[in-house]
Amino acid sequence: MATTQTREQTRGVATTAPPRPPRSREEIETVIARVLKWFFIIFFVITTAFPFYWMLTLSVRDMGDVLLNPTRLFPTLDQLANFWEPYQAVLVDFNFSLYIGNSLALSVVVVLLTLLLAIPGAYAVTRLDFRLKAAMSWGILLVYMFPAIVIGIPLFVVFSQLGARGSFPTMVIVYMSGTLPVALYMLRSYFQTIPAELEEAALIDGMTRINTIWRIVLPLSIPAVASVALYTFMIAWNEFLFAILFLTDSPLSWTLPLGLRQLDSQEVPRTMLMAGSVIITVPVIVLFFFFERFLTRGLTAGAVKG
């Protein structure tokens, strides 16, 4: 360190007298860093965004065209004009409109129930003092990391036994085994960042606990609650393991991911699968862009399991 310092100092003196000084390590490395930076920006943009662009393009082309011109990057105007055809086929002929309804209903109910349970639960674990507090906190962490497939088998068996394997309430409950721990964990991390003084002041002024939660904690937590809602929605919307375990033999209740997967194993033009993929991906991406600000913060506050 010391030698570099002296070198810098001498160089500072030397610049007053040309010829051109040798480039310092600082300058060289700054240039390299800039080059690398743009290289990686391009690399990341291509690897992350291009597959989605490709999905969109392929979805409007027909299979014959793809086989003939595999490298064509843009669809023809003709294909763009008829872009609706594959979508109509997927939505109507392959029942995707039904699956959209199923997925939407399931995800929304799961989100609401998860929030209803997780907000008071997370609050209690962070703010209130009780004997089992530490145990509960650890429990949340443990459950958060627990493998879904280990829970999947017994749940599969018990609901088969009850004859309710593919029913809506079953799916809600089963999906909540994935969303509830995440929501609890995220909200707990967030509540820890809200200063307790605010609530204490309110309590001293004679507000009840419940009122404090309702009037002070919740309004302060709107960003966190929004991000938890969105994440649990995404988890439920993207869920695949429980869908294939529980719903495979009840086609009328298939969710979008399961429907798409089953379509994949049929003799269907590959490009039509891309239309299906677009249908299932677009809602998530749109939601994400609307709420990006909340989401990035929420992710680091607790992260999503996956």
């Binding site: 990341f44 597959p51 490709w54 999905m55 993207n238 994949d264 299906g276 993929s277």
Partner: peptide, 26 residues
Amino acid sequence: GFLLFPYIAPIVSVVLVWKMLFNAQF
């Protein structure tokens, strides 16, 4: 925003795109 795409997109659709991109014929 782009950087988060792979993570938030549904697994089923992402896998299908990979299958398309790495297919032997096209």
